[in-house]
Every structure is written in structure tokens, then in C-alpha cells.
Simulated scan of single mutants.
Amino acid sequence: MDLRLALGLAEALERPSFPEGVGLEVYLDPGLLEEDEPFRQLAAKRPKRLSVHLPFWNLDLLSPDPEVRGLTLRRLLLGLDRAAELGADRAVFHSGIPHGRTPEEDQRRAERLAAALKPVVRRAEILGVELFLENTHEPSPEGLKAVLEAYPELGFCFDAAHARVFSHTPEPAPWLELDPHHLHLNDTDGLFDRHWNLGQGVLGHRDWLGPFLDRTLVLEVRGDPGPSLRLLQELAAGRLTPS
């Protein structure tokens, strides 16, 4: 099982070790993105399996503000350069769609987003870093589907908590039809993006996650990930049955 733990860059540097057999997905904090030393330190201690989460706060490639559009592109491209410096095999990013967009707005946006992503996809291909688009505030999978179809080399990262809390398509099944090869795993009460351990909330991972255990699984949980690790081990061993 390709299992990784999500940590911020500073947190990853402070952590003395990682759980046995567990890789790392590091969030590239924009406050540290342009500093070389943290990346040298992480490259020296990184686990064998490493992915990055590109910056996303307040970023949007389609922002009506041209300065935000320019900043977003620079952040994504520099993030990919840092991923390559670290030896990361993959990078996850958000579409930047604002919360509360209608399905029609999402569809209209998809073609423009595909065009805006061209230099990002190209940079990732040149650097040898697989790129994955994660669902965040999209109302349904349709807008993402259009972008993924525009770039066959672009993968899908599924976050079930985002689907439940932020979208108008709360159940996993329609999103799973996009065939995610990278999954962000945590649990929620259904109202807020809690980042709880698996089994603590309402997402019912035992009911749908089994066929995707051969994909890259990233635990995005706050605090001790032990309960989530145990649930995944039991699920892989077939000791958990659907609820």
C-alpha cells in the first residue's frame, strides 16, 4: 500500500521520524517557498515516497485580478520546481474555483482553466512530476472531468470530505467515476472540513475505499494518525466489512 502522511513543510522538518512504511506529502507553505534552506533540509531527511501539495490559499489562475492570476502561476511553477528538487514523484493542486459557484459557472470555467493550465502541465511533464487535480469547491465532478479530458497526463485526486462539505454532490460514487489515482483521506461530521481520523465521522470509508487501496493514499488528519492507520490495515486485510 502506497500510504503517505500529509504535513506542512515546517512540521515535516520538525518531525524526528515518520511511521514505518509511510511516505510523506508535504504542503509547500508559501511563506517558505522561496527559501532554499528548508528544502535542502527536507531533501536530506525525506522518506522514500514523497509527494507535494502545491500552494493554494487565495490563489486562482482565473481570478479577475491580473496580479492574482500572475501570482498563482508563479506559485504553481515554483512549487513544481521545488517538488523536483525534493525528488517528489507527484504534486497535487486545486482548481481555485470559489465556493458557491453554480454548475453552469463551473462548466464555463472549465475550458478557460484548461487553457490557463497549459504552462503548469508542461512544466510538470518536463520535470517528471505527475500532476493531480483535487476536488475542492466544485459543485459536481463535471467541471473537473472536462479539464482532465483536456490533459490525459493529468490525474485526479479525490477528497471525500471536500465532496461532502463543499460540493452539491456529497456521495463518493460520482467522483470515483473520474478514476482517482491519488486520494486524500480524513473524516468529517459532514458540516466542516474537520480532518478527523478515519472512522470518526460520516464518510464511511469502509464502504467504498476498498477498490482503491492500490492507489496513493494520503492521510490528511490532525494529531495522531494511528486510528486511521489501523483502519486502513484492517481494511486491506479484509477484516472490515461494509457498514
Rank of each mutant, 00 (worst) to 15 (best):
A91Q: 08
L73H: 05
S228W: 08
W175K: 03
P47Q: 08
L203T: 03
E35T: 07
A116G: 07
V221G: 02
L203Q: 08
A115W: 14
D207M: 14
E153D: 15
G100H: 11
Y27H: 14
D214R: 14
L133H: 06
P47F: 06
G143Y: 02
R122P: 00
K145Q: 15
L231M: 15
I97W: 09
P119M: 12
L113A: 08
W208N: 03
P64M: 11
F132D: 00
Q107C: 03
W57C: 03
D36P: 09
H137G: 00
S243L: 13
L131K: 02
T136H: 05
L71C: 10
T136M: 09
L32W: 11
V165G: 13
P55D: 04
G21D: 07
L154E: 05
E130H: 10
E138G: 01
V22T: 11
E220D: 11
D189Y: 12
A43N: 07
H137Q: 13
F93G: 00
S228N: 08
L178F: 06
L229R: 03
G23S: 12
R74I: 01
S51C: 11
P55C: 06
L203D: 05
F212S: 00
E130V: 01
G143V: 02
P174Q: 05
E34D: 14
L144M: 12
L71Y: 08
A6F: 14
R108C: 04
G143F: 02
P225E: 05
K145V: 01
L13I: 06
P30M: 06
G128S: 04
E125N: 08
L154F: 10
D65Y: 03
C157N: 10
D214Q: 14
L185W: 07
P242K: 12
F93Q: 02
E20H: 12
T216R: 11
E142F: 07
R164T: 11
R69V: 05
G210K: 14
R82C: 00
P30R: 10
G31K: 12
L148F: 03
R206H: 11
F39T: 00
T216Q: 09
S167F: 03
G223H: 10
G96M: 08
L9K: 09
R122M: 08
D207T: 15
L28Y: 09
L42Q: 03
R123E: 03
W175M: 01
R112P: 00
D159A: 15
D60R: 09
F192H: 13
H99L: 14
G100D: 09
W57E: 11
L232T: 01
E35C: 04
R206D: 12
E25R: 09
E67I: 01
R230A: 15
L133W: 05
D60F: 10
S51A: 15
F39S: 00
W57R: 11
E20T: 09
H184M: 14
P225G: 06
L178A: 04
D89G: 15
E25D: 12
F132I: 00
S243Q: 13
L71N: 11
L240F: 10
L61Y: 07
D36S: 15
E130P: 01
L28F: 02
A160R: 13
R239V: 12
